[in-house]
Nucleic acid binder design. Structure first.
Length: 591
RNA sequence: GCGCCGUUGGUCCAGUGGUAGGACAUUAGCUUCCCAAGCUAAUAGCCCGGGUUCAAUUCCCGGACGGCGCACCA
């Protein structure tokens, strides 16, 4: 049924230059696609549209980080462990299973994911674990360690390992200290990036929807969780279908159309910042051609959330009868910045000044090491540390003559006068804050594919079927087709000059003088060109018996793609008219 | 990765143990004054490797790629 549509779309994509499988001349390679001329233009327009909405209009800044990053970055981010799958294949039935999951299910061991492969193999043998599908013993089966990241070496030799980034986000997080400086250490601020990311998928499928190299558009918004609130008013009345986790487990659960303000007020979306960007994203997907009747926001159920996310919503679209993920909206809290703060040499915080400095009493100690050393020998350093901790934790303990601290299993008693304990008044002008991260992360390729799928139409014109792409004029690869009615009597020259003129006015124009006019219209319909301009005899000022009354010299027809309706405009107004149509400042009916 | 099925001009298909045919598209010409018309001609193909055979696009084995199912999707 709907797979016919996807077959037709893939065929159209290849035939008309939207996208094709990479390296077909060499047998092809799974999971990689090359965008052809139409596809590259469409993709660029979608990216520009995203940039305009999520970066420029929101006042966020855009960066461009490398696709290769050194190994320590991914140790900190958790991708080296978390992105690792341990696959074990059953010798009897051939099914593959996650070995770490089997271990977790059948033993008391948790987080088997972080156990080295060789040890997991030993555990499988030790507990005599069996295949969940057929019950055959798995002992002795090799466990394949599969990391979804592409590994590479940086520089000669293999001294420095690097990985192709599995998401663009880390490229932003690791530069946070400098980016915060650019933002003058003022929260909130947002950093966007559009770029390629790579995942060595086990099984790429479904054309552009699951690939090994793809383009992400991400925004990392850094906020003070205690202070910053989104300007919800601007999207409060936007409505979208919401599909909360609780409804997904119900038998008759389905998405419900609700206002952004409502989902915030009722706590359906827990974080107002997430709700704010859901509202913006909904509007944006609409403008690039995603059908809002086949669109929803679905909340992740607790089991499917990523390692960093505390609340996560996906934008989903229905394509070929399946709901696919278009993007994720995650509240990442301070997970990423805290990790990089801990793993790197830099501080990943901003200093927030109080309106009025506060004075606090702060207990301090200055242990007398000339006493502790002789008294406790090798343990003296640990004892000093314990005293310091105690002072911070429980200053009251220093009120007597002696304090006792525990180091390992031993207890040590120290005279208070040797600890250098005192309570000082300290004036704090502010505090270091680790910002929380709000992350709208969108897949450009999936958005593009969905827009194509949702805009692919068939209808009938004068008894002939035609197929066309009802792409919004802002993202269509080409805005205007310019044709001479026939390439004779000077119409070709006039039309070519007109095409040049329109290009100079900043429009994306294609010129075509081959074959019959109807064929040329259909060609442009198929690649989604919203407007076609035709130069005819009336344009040249030649009176014709059947000329329509509006026709005059230096006028041309403009034909609209979806309705195939035509109207006549003066050539001198043409560039402005078309620009207005493209930018949505005018509709075809206004012309 | 596993299982089933498949792979023939740019696209969609037919077909054969003796290297292939159609439709659409493309190009050139004729025709045509607004929606894939017609006529003429041209361009262009058996996924890759090995085996069997006098001969393989066809049969067998392996691979690549694709579709579906399973698994996976941080």
């Amino acid at each position: 049924m709907s797979s016919d549509n996807s077959t037709g779309l893939v065929e159209l994509a290849k035939r008309r230059g939207f996208f094709l499988q990479t390296a077909g001349a060499y047998g092809g390679v799974s999971g990689f696609y090359t965008f052809g001329p139409e596809g590259a233009a469409l993709k660029r327009n979608i990216e520009d549209s995203w940039r305009d909405r999520f970066a420029i209009r929101e006042g966020n800044m855009e960066v461009d980080a490398p696709t290769v990053l050194p190994e320590p970055v991914f140790e900190a981010s958790g991708h080296l462990d978390g992105f690792d799958d341990m696959l074990v294949e059953c010798p009897e039935c051939g099914e593959s299973h996650r070995a770490d999951h089997i271990v977790e299910d059948r033993t008391d061991i948790e987080e088997a994911e972080s156990i080295p492969v060789t040890e997991v193999e030993e555990l499988v043998a030790e507990y005599e674990l069996v295949c969940p599908t057929c019950g055959a013993g798995l002992a002795g089966q090799a466990i394949e360690d599969f990391n979804l990241m592409f590994e590479t070496n940086i520089g000669p030799g293999s001294s420095a390992s690097g990985y192709l980034r599995p998401e663009t986000a880390q490229g932003i997080f690791i530069e946070f200290p400098q980016l915060a400086e650019y933002a003058r250490n003022q929260l909130p601020f947002g950093v966007t990036q559009i770029g390629r990311a790579y995942r060595n998928e086990i099984s790429p499928r479904k054309s552009l929807l699951r690939v090994r190299e793809f383009t992400q558009a991400e925004l990392e918004l850094f906020i003070d969780p205690e202070e910053d609130e989104p300007a919800l008013e601007s999207v409060a009345d936007v409505t979208a279908p919401f599909y909360p986790a609780s409804d997904q487990t119900a038998d008759d659960g389905e998405a419900r159309e609700m206002r952004i303000q409502t989902v915030v007020d009722e706590g359906i979306v827990g974080k107002p910042w997430i709700a704010y960007y859901l509202g913006i994203a909904k509007q944006w997907y609409d403008t690039i051609g995603v059908d809002m009747d086949r669109f929803r926001f679905r909340q992740h159920r607790s089991g499917e959330r990523a390692h960093y996310a505390t609340d996560c919503w996906d934008a989903e679209a229905e394509v070929d009868g399946d709901w696919i993920e278009l993007g994720g909206f995650a509240y990442r809290s301070d997970y990423d910045l805290s990790k990089h703060d801990a793993y790197s040499d830099e501080e990943f915080t901003v200093f927030r000044q109080y309106d009025d400095p506060v004075t606090v009493e702060q207990p301090t100690v200055d242990p007398d090491m000339s006493y502790l050393g002789p008294a406790f020998g090798d343990d003296a350093g640990a004892v000093a540390g314990a005293i310091e901790n105690l002072a911070a934790r429980n200053p009251g303990a220093f009120e007597g003559e002696n304090v006792s601290v525990a180091v390992d299993d031993d207890s040590y008693t120290v005279p208070v006068e040797k600890t250098g304990f005192s309570v000082e008044e300290v004036t704090e002008s502010g505090k270091h804050v680790t910002p929380h991260v709000v992350e709208p992360s969108l897949g450009i390729d999936r958005a593009l594919y969905t827009a194509l799928d949702h805009c692919y139409r068939d209808d009938e014109v004068d008894g002939e079927t035609r197929s066309y792409l009802a792409l919004p004029q802002t993202v269509a690869p080409t805005t205007v087709g310019v044709f001479p009615l026939m390439d004779r009597d000077g119409m070709g020259e006039y039309a070519r000059d007109l095409a040049t003129e329109l290009r100079e006015a900043g429009l994306s124009v294609t010129y075509d003088d081959s074959g019959a006019i109807g064929r040329r219209y259909r060609r442009q319909d198929e690649v989604g060109t919203p407007f076609c301009v035709t130069v005819d005899y009336a344009t040249l000022g030649e009176a014709r018996a059947d000329a329509d009354e509006a026709a005059g010299p230096d006028t041309v027809t403009i034909r609209e793609r979806d309705s195939t309706a035509q109207t006549r405009v003066a050539v001198e107004d043409l560039a402005e008219t078309l620009t207005a149509l493209r930018d949505g400042r005018a509709t075809f009916d206004d012309v």
